[in-house]
């Protein structure tokens, strides 16, 4: 296979900005022009976490991969907070403690999701409640399938998808972006949900090569549609493997290199959430976090950000604060998925 020289990382040319956040469908020609302007050649894209975060511009729309506590691109979110990003509109099928961090740090003031709490084990997120009930941020609620259909429409290059849930509910009534129609073939009621094409997608995977060919083990959630829909993709990965290794198991490749604009190798890049087959969630850390922030959603959260996000020298410094014992225990449980 051909070898390509690594080109120096440079600031991406900015895609034509959208005039309204996330609620507007991008015209097809704009979508195509934005894609045509990307450098989709076979080239190495490996950058640092800091460089990758610098590609995310304030005020843009960000799609977050994984779901709930699984394959969350946590290291990159962590770096966006350290880089003091502002006014990002973030969409994720189900959002958990990453949503707390995005709101409390001021990185995001708009969440698009189907479910937002820290995890079913801990009830309601007081951090989410503080920001949403206090009117400091918006949380637009869609059904889980609707988020999937929005990413899928975005991935398909069509402006909407029809679906049969959300009809009759107040979830649809609170979403003026939806349209109820009578099907032109059957006259049945259908709900149309608009395409979601985030400016940038953040996705964490088990392994990918330097070009961005990404292999996902286990649950893939909505990451393939998200990658295809987005105008840029930043891929963080537990490890970078050779292109030869990717080619030995091409059926495992879920996202092709030409969707991917940057690759960052970050071991434990989803911590304290899980990465399938590598580590399970670090529940001791998460439980302590939930206790601290739910007892004081402002002060407790600020202290967490100071201690665990702004404080550490680098991502390994953050992992050190979680502690070796918990990392080892989580890894042991994570790998046990492959045991009989």
């Amino acid at each position: 296979m051909p070898k390509r020289k690594k080109r120096p990382a440079r600031q991406w040319r900015r895609a034509r900005p959208m005039n309204v956040i996330q609620d507007t469908v991008q015209p097809y020609n704009v979508l195509r022009e934005n894609l045509a302007r990307r450098d989709r050649s076979l080239r190495e894209k490996v950058v640092t976490l800091e460089e990758a975060a610098s590609f995310v511009n304030d005020g843009t729309t960000v799609g977050i991969g994984g779901s709930t506590m699984s394959r969350t691109p946590m290291a990159l979110i962590w770096q966006l907070i350290r880089a003091r990003k502002k006014k990002l509109s973030c969409s994720r099928c189900i959002i958990s403690t990453d949503g707390d961090l995005l709101l409390a740090s001021g990185v995001s003031d708009h969440i698009v999701s189907s479910w937002f709490a820290q995890g079913i084990l801990w009830g309601l997120s007081k951090v989410m409640r503080h920001h949403i009930e206090g009117g400091h941020a918006r949380y637009d609620e869609w059904s889980h399938m609707a988020i999937g259909m929005r990413f899928r429409a975005g991935a398909m290059g069509v402006p909407f998808m029809p679906m049969r849930s959300m009809l009759g509910s107040d979830v649809a009534k609170r979403r003026p972006e939806t349209k109820e129609i009578d099907c032109p073939f059957t006259a049945e009621k259908l709900l149309l949900v608009p395409a979601l094409n985030p400016d940038v997608a953040l996705i964490h995977v088990q392994r990918c090569d330097a070009y961005g060919n990404a292999q996902i083990d286990g649950l893939q959630f909505m990451d393939i549609d998200l990658a295809m829909a987005a105008n840029r993709v930043i891929m963080t990965t537990e490890r970078i493997v050779s292109n030869d290794q990717i080619r030995r198991a091409p059926d495992q490749t879920k996202i092709p290199f030409f969707c991917v604009d940057a690759v960052v190798e970050v071991p434990f890049g989803s911590a304290p959430h899980e990465c399938y087959g590598v580590y399970e969630p670090m529940l001791d850390h998460l439980e302590a976090y939930v206790k601290q922030v739910n007892s004081d959603p402002v002060g407790g959260m600020q202290k967490y950000l100071d201690d665990y996000v702004y404080g550490p020298k680098d991502w390994n410094g953050f992992l050190s604060k979680i502690g070796l014992d918990e990392l080892v225990a989580a890894s042991r449980r994570g790998r046990s998925i492959y045991d009989d």
Partner: peptide, 24 residues
């Protein structure tokens, strides 16, 4: 599993697939 999106949900299952696919 602590949620229906954790790896433990897949142990000894017949199939894993995308979230949109299973909802469809």
């Amino acid at each position: 599993p602590p949620s229906t999106n954790d790896q433990r949900c897949t142990k000894r299952a017949n199939m894993v697939l995308g979230s949109a696919e299973v909802l469809l």
